[in-house]
Amino acid sequence: MNIQAVRSKAPGLMRLFGVICMLFGLLGAGALSAQVDTFEFETTEQQQRFRKLSDELRCPMCQNTNLTGSSGGVAEDLRREIHRMIMDGMTDQEIEQFMFERYGDFIFYRPRLRQETLLLWFGPLAFLAIGGFVAFSISRRARKIDEDEKALDSAQQEKLQDLLNSKG
């Protein structure tokens, strides 16, 4: 088999791979909504709150997914608790406080602004400020050097004038 043959075959394989990925994606999406929809609500507002909370709370066990997307045991339990608390008429703040008291800042994808999370919130800004300051001072110094070099001292000015005069 020469290289040409491999090349001509590749697009077909790629397409097949793409179709398989899409199929799995659809399956995944189906499973995801099924997880959410196993709970019954009285109003769509309650359902939306449930969805929003389980989207914004992080699964403590499988650390890179939210409660909605996780099939872990504890995520399942926490979704059930959120459902119970919504049906009991608790507010979003109360539910978030419930989670915070048990699992700490970690449970939030958007951690609360507290003394312990200051660095998390403003660390990137501080680094940006430091970087900006360094970049600014480097460019300012470069410009100053540039100007210094452009300016001629009196001896050079005189020489320049001589040259111009002799030619003229």
Partner: peptide, 13 residues
């Protein structure tokens, strides 16, 4: 059995 006490303890597995 249902992990409710575990939630109060902050257990995650």
């Amino acid at each position: 059995g249902n992990g409710r006490f575990g939630i109060d303890l902050g257990v995650y597995g």
